[in-house]
Amino acid sequence: MGTDEAYVTDNGSVRYRIIGTTQLLNPEGTAVAVGGARLRALLTVLALRPGRTVPVGHLVDEVWNGEPPADAAGALQALVGRLRRAAGPGAVASVEGGGYRLDAEPDDIDLYRFERLAAEGARALEQGDPAKALSRLEDALALWTGPVLADLPDRTAEAARWEARRLDARRARLAAALALGRAEEVLPELAALCAAHPLDEPLHTLRIRALRAAGRTAEALAAYEEVRRTLADRLGADPGPELRALHGALLHTTPDVAPA
């Protein structure tokens, strides 16, 4: 496998991917496949809690999804041995009293690296620096190479929380691009996201703002009417104040002429 420059480290540490297929990356950034579904599940559970002790019982429940083998502790110990051979003997520590700990920092895990970069981007956007925001958010979203926690047997609830954070990051990235005057560029992605999330008012607000910025006032008014009907039909509610204010501004915009 090749080298991932984003994961080359300067401290000799191993890094881990739990977005998409679970992998580890050696200090040079070379991706190393982790063989076996149980082994990948174990690494995923440990990587979700870097530097923290995970009790044996919790690991067994997560790795075997509530159906442990007869000698669960022995089977888990064997898996930990295989993981140490793949990641290095010091990668997983045995903790007195029962449990194991992945010797890693949050930034060594792609999911927490995503979280840090996304938070930095969101702060930059709030502080009026859309260029910095766009850079950080694009770096964060580039880490999203597949389904999050793909190798965790029971991933539904945890994955849903991270998918919501990914959507927040996408929304913020689109807002940053729009603030930089890239309305036409973001419209296709906004249309797709609005179709996938028909009740997400902030997304619809962004799309209508982008249509207005692109000089497509008639389409913006039609998009507002569409979301208004959807909210009424599904929730029995009117659009929120931000959408209503945007609609009022559109009514005072010369049709199909981009504002200065």
Rank of each mutant, 00 (worst) to 15 (best):
R209F: 11
P188R: 03
L180Y: 10
V60S: 03
W64N: 04
E120T: 04
V32R: 13
L231M: 09
L193N: 01
G29W: 05
T22L: 02
P106L: 10
E185D: 15
A220W: 05
T30Y: 06
A175V: 08
E96V: 11
R82Y: 02
S135G: 09
L174A: 07
A6Y: 11
L250E: 09
E115I: 03
Q77N: 12
A249Q: 15
A222M: 08
L48F: 03
G128W: 02
L211G: 10
V80D: 03
A37R: 14
V34Q: 01
Q23F: 12
D154K: 11
L39T: 02
S135C: 01
L221R: 13
L83S: 07
E115S: 12
L152C: 00
R182F: 04
D107E: 13
V92R: 00
G146E: 05
L211C: 06
A124Y: 01
T21K: 13
V227D: 02
E219I: 06
R123A: 15
L193S: 00
A131D: 14
N65G: 08
A192C: 08
G248Q: 11
Y7K: 12
A160H: 09
V148N: 00
E126A: 11
F114G: 01
L143Y: 05
V63C: 06
Q77H: 11
A160Y: 10
L235Q: 14
I18Q: 03
R234E: 13
L59S: 03
A160T: 10
I208K: 03
P106A: 11
A93E: 15
A122D: 12
D256Q: 06
E225W: 09
D233F: 13
V34W: 03
A175T: 09
V54F: 09
P202M: 06
H58C: 08
Y224Q: 04
A169G: 08
L102Q: 01
L111C: 05
D71K: 10
Y16S: 06
G98H: 07
A191V: 13
G90R: 11
E105G: 06
L43E: 04
A176Q: 07
L46F: 00
D200E: 14
G35E: 15
T53V: 13
A78E: 04
R84V: 03
R171L: 09
T30Q: 10
P89S: 14
R212W: 10
A169T: 02
G36V: 06
L231A: 12
V92H: 00
V45R: 05
L125T: 05
L43W: 01
V45D: 00
L251W: 12
A75K: 08
E138P: 07
A260S: 15
D233S: 12
R17A: 04
A160Q: 13
V63A: 06
T156S: 15
E67C: 07
E219S: 11
R182V: 08
T253N: 07
V227S: 05
A237Q: 13
A237M: 14
E105I: 04
A122S: 12
G90W: 08
E126H: 04
G12V: 07
E184S: 14
R82L: 03
E105T: 08
D10A: 13
S135F: 09
L187R: 10
A140Q: 02
R216E: 08
P27T: 12
L76P: 00
R234Q: 14
G248M: 12
V34Y: 00
A150S: 12
T21V: 13
R49F: 04
L174N: 05
V32I: 15
A179N: 06
L149T: 07
V227F: 05
A164S: 11
R244F: 12
N65H: 15
S13W: 10
